[in-house]
Computed example of a mutant assay.
Amino acid sequence: MQLESTLTCPACSHQVTEIMPTDACRFFYDCKVCGARLTPKAGDCCVFCSYGTVPCPSVQQDGKGRCCG
């Protein structure tokens, strides 16, 4: 399982690599450059699934239908 994912802000394109939590979803992420609040896109459970290079651990392990469940 890969726990590092690079988030890309849709507002300013700033990228940051974060370690994903294995015990919870991350519903919000505030861009450190422009201040935009990232929230999951429709159908996604967390910001990593929407804006990251790697989906969250739940999706990696169990597939999209079992995200953070």
Rank of each mutant, 00 (worst) to 15 (best):
V59Q: 08
A11Q: 15
C56V: 01
T8Y: 07
V47A: 06
C12Y: 12
C67K: 01
D62E: 15
P57T: 08
V59I: 14
G35W: 05
T17C: 04
C12F: 14
G35N: 05
I19G: 06
D30E: 15
A42E: 14
S58H: 10
Q15D: 04
R37T: 10
C9L: 14
C67R: 01
A36S: 11
D62G: 14
T53A: 07
P40W: 09
C68S: 02
R66D: 13
Q2A: 14
E18M: 11
T6E: 13
V16S: 07
C67V: 03
V33S: 10
T6R: 14
L7V: 07
H14I: 03
Q60T: 05
C68F: 02
Q61N: 10
C12Q: 09
P40R: 09
C25M: 07
P21A: 08
E4Q: 12
T22N: 13
T39M: 15
K32A: 11
P21E: 13
D62R: 10
S50K: 09
G63Q: 05
L38Y: 07
V54K: 09
C56Y: 09
S5G: 10
Q60C: 02
P55G: 06
T39Y: 07
L38N: 02
S5D: 10
F27E: 11
C12S: 08
Y29K: 04
S5Q: 02
C67N: 02
A24Y: 12
Q2C: 05
C25E: 08
Q2E: 15
K64H: 07
C67W: 01
C12A: 09
L38K: 03
Q61M: 15
K64T: 09
E4T: 13
T22A: 14
L38H: 03
F27P: 01
T22S: 15
G65A: 14
C9V: 09
D23P: 00
T53S: 15
P55L: 02
C49V: 03
R26Y: 01
C45M: 00
P21G: 06
G63N: 12
F48P: 01
S5M: 02
P55T: 13
D30T: 04
K32P: 01
S50T: 00
P55W: 00
G43N: 10
P10V: 00
D62V: 05
G43T: 03
P21L: 04
